[in-house]
Amino acid sequence: MSERLDALEERINALRAEVRRAVRARDGALARSLRAELRGVERAWDQALADQEPPARETPSASEPDEAPRAGAAREPGALVPVREQVHQALTILGVPASAKMIVAVHGALRAGSLRGTQLASLRRDEERSFRSSPFARPYYLCAALTDRLSASRGLLTVSTWPLERRAIGPLSPRVDFLTTAIRVAEHILRLEEAGEPTPSGAERLLSRLAYNVPGVPVAPDAPPRPAMVVKAARAELEVHAGADADARARIADRARARLGDAERLFGGTILSLAREEAS
């Protein structure tokens, strides 16, 4: 290793120690500036190392943004479709309110997509902004699920074209929606099987994960659960909750229709409307 690299390493180690000393002394500003200097030296080290190596082996360089597809790799088909479109596809498969995490998992498993959780973070806010500036201009909006306080449920996404009853969340709804998710994923795999298409291994893994928490699915350590068994077992539990859940959802939906305006119905009641609700 060249002297330059040695010197840089020495500097890197010294800086790291200084950074940690600063952090321990709760000196945030100093830590930040030291950290910045450290990154600079680390980059110089990377560069010095690269200068030494024959350039053939690796192509990606530090300057390339990490979002960009790797050079030479084919773009995945999903990447051409806008994020909201992909989320819509996943929610349509499920047909029930879902968390960003579930949407990413389902889309990855069943549509071979490569959504990231972070891409969904601002989605609901963007949709709301778009709706408020020109209401109903789009054929669908990705919107909120409604709690029994008529506020937007944390973390759940729905589609505006669904009936309000489906978008409302009563106490049993998370369970009902989980069982429905298991059924929908199993049915999707069944359709693929019928069409003679191979089941993606990701889909099997997702189904195993879901089926594990559905009582009555036979477990064989070697094989993924049979989709038909998952459907049967999940329906059996669903049967138990369906009536009570439908009633609770209907009550929330009725209240939402009575008290909320269009935008609030889609994106959840504001603090003000909630206070009104509370007072009544």
Partner: peptide, 9 residues
């Protein structure tokens, strides 16, 4: 960016 350089770091 998985690779030898990052691993070396």
């Amino acid at each position: 960016a998985p690779g030898e350089r990052a691993a070396a770091r």
